[in-house]
Design a protein around this nucleic acid. Structure first.
Length: 433
RNA sequence: GGAGAGGUGGCCGAGUGGUCGAUGGCGACAGUCUUGAAAACUGUUAACCCCGCAAGGGGUUCGUGGGUUCGAAUCCCACCCUCUCCGCCA
């Protein structure tokens, strides 16, 4: 959600943002509707004012004939009002639908571009490895070590499904726990959040409206064997949804800020519209586990910019501890989400793909989400302001298993366990057949 | 799943058809008193939206949505949520 006064005063900013982000939205049409809506509101409110004034007088009317006359008039007014209110409700619904699709305006520093091919590399870390043997990819490694079973995952759950098994399952939890401990040292509070959330949480974090087909809705209308009522809850695609919504509707004290939160959760993604894309292995799947950093801070661009760097650094430190080569990119306008105004991806080197693959995504929203979530704080001057929100992945598995397995594989087909993870695996040093 | 109770302002709680955005209390804020504080006393104290440069005016909101009515916190219907008891269960 955006500042409507700003839209009215400077529609061109939002038109430019729509164009840059490839959002099909007619800002002028929205403003025309906004005008129409306000006109209709004025009419309705005038009628309501009259009704209220007469109603207030009603008990004082003693004369029976006069009273009857007034009642008759009010009845007519009431009917007309009902019609106008219904018409206004239609306008409001259309208005809201457009209003929720207005984009956050990218910061001036964000590179212009149409899609991820135009993201701009900021820095690289680590050395791209060479192997003195014929390296396997993570699928082959997972299969030979019996730690990943994709065919059986597909058998029971369909495409993009998998089992992690044995040391594969343990390795994932080691990664998650290591990351949680890392963030604990950085002052983050961990959350195991609801995985099923209501529409408001999806809307508040700006996944809805627009991203409905990306989320699993729970309670199918009809199964093969029986009709089931929908529960109107949705499986989160990231704990950002639950954790950012945690203080929704609240007014925080400035001394409470910044909030450094992290959610650990399963994440569910329908991956609609990605048919045929990244079908191999564990890169793009329907379910995974993630530790996500979430920040709520003051409504100050400098403060949130610093927080952005802080959570970016936290994630980089995890990759450095795992000794994985990665690069950081500035995400271009065309590859940003509706609400994001600045975004970095971290891409980790994946030997089998012979390229860097996105493993982290660090986003600044300013007050875009907090306006939707109605999440404020009392500023130094005593006024209430919307907080700034940010979030970044800290680790997401099993996608991160791709570089780990592939980078740490040995000639004999075994995989060395990264040193920092060994304490979380009972001191185990390698996975072998 | 069965039975019952309930959802009112920052909090507690009154309010069963009209001068009710809502008595009272607590809290918070300001003032009087005090060397200072406490106590006491006095006053102020909701959010959102629309019009307006402003002063100000108007509207909406008593869980949510619908209905009855000239008029709804109050009556009717549906739904959501909370609590208590019983059953079932990780």
């Amino acid at each position: 959600m955006v500042d409507l006064d700003l839209v009215r005063a400077h529609p061109e900013l939002f038109e430019a943002a729509c164009k840059a982000k490839n959002i099909k939205l007619d800002v002028k049409a929205f403003l025309a509707l906004d005008e129409k809506r306000r006109k209709a509101m004025a009419e309705v409110q005038t009628m309501q004012a009259e009704r209220n004034a007469v109603s207030k007088k009603m008990p004082t009317l003693k004369d029976k004939a006069e009273k009857e006359k007034v009642v008759k008039e009010m009845k007519a007014l009431g009917e007309k009002l009902k019609e106008q209110e219904a018409a206004l409700a239609v306008l409001e619904a259309d208005w809201m639908n457009l209003q929720l699709r207005l984009p956050g305006i990218p910061l001036p520093s964000v590179p212009k571009g149409k899609d991820d091919s135009e993201n701009v590399e900021v820095r690289k870390h680590g050395k791209i490895p060479t192997f003195d043997f014929d390296p396997k990819d993570h699928v082959a490694l997972g299969e030979s070590l019996d730690i990943i079973d994709i065919p059986r995952g597909v058998k029971i759950a369909g495409a993009r499904s998998y089992f992690l098994k044995g040391d594969g399952a343990r390795l994932e939890f080691a990664l998650l726990l290591f990351t949680l401990d890392h963030l604990k040292k950085k002052g983050f509070t961990a959350f195991i959040p609801p995985l099923l959330v209501n529409y408001e949480a999806m809307m508040g974090t700006s996944y809805f409206p627009g991203g409905e087909e990306m989320a699993y809705a729970v309670g199918v209308k009809k199964s093969r064997t029986q009709a089931i009522e929908s529960d109107d809850v949705y499986l989160i695609g990231t704990s950002e949804v639950s954790v950012t919504s945690y203080h929704g509707g609240e007014t925080l004290a400035i001394t409470d800020l910044p909030k450094r939160y992290c959610g650990i959760s399963n994440c569910f993604r329908r991956e609609a519209g990605t048919y045929g894309k990244d079908t191999h292995g564990l890169y793009r799947i329907h379910q995974f586990q993630k530790v996500e950093q979430v920040i709520l801070c003051e409504n100050d661009p400098d403060v949130s910019a610093n927080m952005h760097q802080e959570i970016l650094k936290n994630a980089e430190e995890v990759l450095q501890a795992l000794k994985l080569p990665y690069r950081v990119v500035d995400v271009c306008t065309g590859d940003m989400g509706q609400g994001q105004i600045y975004k970095n991806d971290i891409e980790t080197w994946m030997p089998s793909r012979k390229c860097y693959g996105e493993t982290h995504s660090c986003s600044t929203f300013h007050d875009f989400q907090s306006r939707r979530l109605n999440m404020k704080y009392v500023a130094k001057d005593g006024t209430k302001k919307f907080v700034h929100t940010l979030n970044n992945t800290c680790i997401a598995s099993p996608r991160i298993l791709i570089p780990i397995l592939e980078m740490y594989q040995q000639k004999d087909g075994s995989v060395i366990i990264p040193e920092v993870l060994r304490p979380y695996m009972g001191g185990q040093e390698k996975i072998s057949t």
